[in-house]
């Protein structure tokens, strides 16, 4: 029972890291980016290639995955995404579905259609007994890393100059421009950062979530649930939503495998009807 809770939390944390870039794209730029999973997949494949082909340590792969996805995200933002911030949501959906299709086919072409496996460092594999509860070491590692990231993320937003600029840009783009904030640059950096986090999540999740060319499609709904349920006005909203989703999904698959997905989709739909602005949104609409 506690093991399930623990696994669920690890899974939820991972989902948050994967999805929080999407929170930014949606909340900040009001851009429906269905291709967010492609950045995560990039991170995953970077790790696979570095570890399996070049034998580079897993620990070095994580920052590399972050960087690779961040660069990819930054480049795509500057060349493509930026042009569509004011396009209709339908255009954004079509555009990002197009990107998903391209990434799926490209991954298939470059890496093949099979599941990718990575060999975790020995100190991270296996389980440790802790007060009678079996704890996967890798899951513990995941929780620790994600927790550090969440705290850092929150601090950056709350304390740094960049954070306050970002918040100003979210609140009112025009006012922020008037204050001399370079809004496009803030957007680009944030987009790259969000993509990087997704890449990192993809790298860490290769073990837990699996990795194959269909990754962006398979997890799209999960990312969207995190954002839609958590809302885009806070960091804690999506974080709690991700934890909830993680625990519910793991518990659902374990206890009621036959109706697990129904529980999640059903809850999501009910939630969206009751609180269209997100479960943890501040204030009423």
């Amino acid at each position: 029972m506690l093991t399930i809770l623990f696994d669920g939390i690890a899974y939820g944390m991972l989902l948050f890291i994967l999805a929080c870039g999407l929170t930014i794209t949606l909340g900040l730029m009001n851009f429906i980016n269905l291709a967010h999973g492609a950045f995560a997949m990039t991170g995953g494949y970077v790790t696979v290639v570095m570890m399996n082909r070049f034998g580079i340590s897993f620990y070095w792969c994580l920052p590399a995955a972050f960087l690779a996805s961040a660069i990819l995200g930054g480049v795509l933002e500057a060349t493509l995404y930026r042009r569509l911030y004011h396009a209709s949501h339908l255009d954004q959906v079509i555009f990002s579905v197009g990107l998903v299709f391209m990434s799926v086919a490209a991954a298939d072409y470059l890496m093949g259609g099979q599941q990718q496996l990575i060999q975790l460092p020995p100190e991270l594999s296996g389980r440790t007994e802790f007060v009678g509860v079996g704890i996967g070491r890798y899951r513990l590692f995941t929780i620790v890393v994600c927790a550090i990231l969440v705290v850092t993320f929150q601090l950056i937003l709350a304390k740094t100059r960049f954070g306050s600029r970002l918040r100003a840009a979210v609140d009112d783009r025009r006012v922020a421009m008037g204050l001399g904030i370079n809004v496009p640059a803030v957007f680009a950096l944030t987009f790259a950062f969000g993509s990087g986090l997704a890449g990192l999540g993809g790298a860490m999740g290769a073990e837990i979530l699996g990795l194959d060319p269909n990754f962006p499609l398979k997890f799209m709904i999960y990312f969207l649930i995190v954002v839609a349920v958590g809302g885009t006005s806070t960091v804690s909203g999506p974080f709690l939503a991700a934890l909830l989703l993680g625990v519910a999904d793991v518990a659902g698959k374990y206890h009621v495998p036959a109706i697990g997905p129904f529980v999640i989709y059903g809850l999501m739909i009910i939630m969206l009807i009751l609180r269209p602005a997100g479960l943890f949104a501040r204030g009423g609409r």
């Binding site: 709904i221 969207l224 954002v227 997905p261 129904f262 739909i269 009807i273 269209p276």
Partner: peptide, 23 residues
Amino acid sequence: LILRGSDLTRLMTTLGIALMMAE
């Protein structure tokens, strides 16, 4: 279920219903 809400919630709701049907 799709009467209220933004494009995003409608997108999610319709997608969710289709996924539930598939399941």
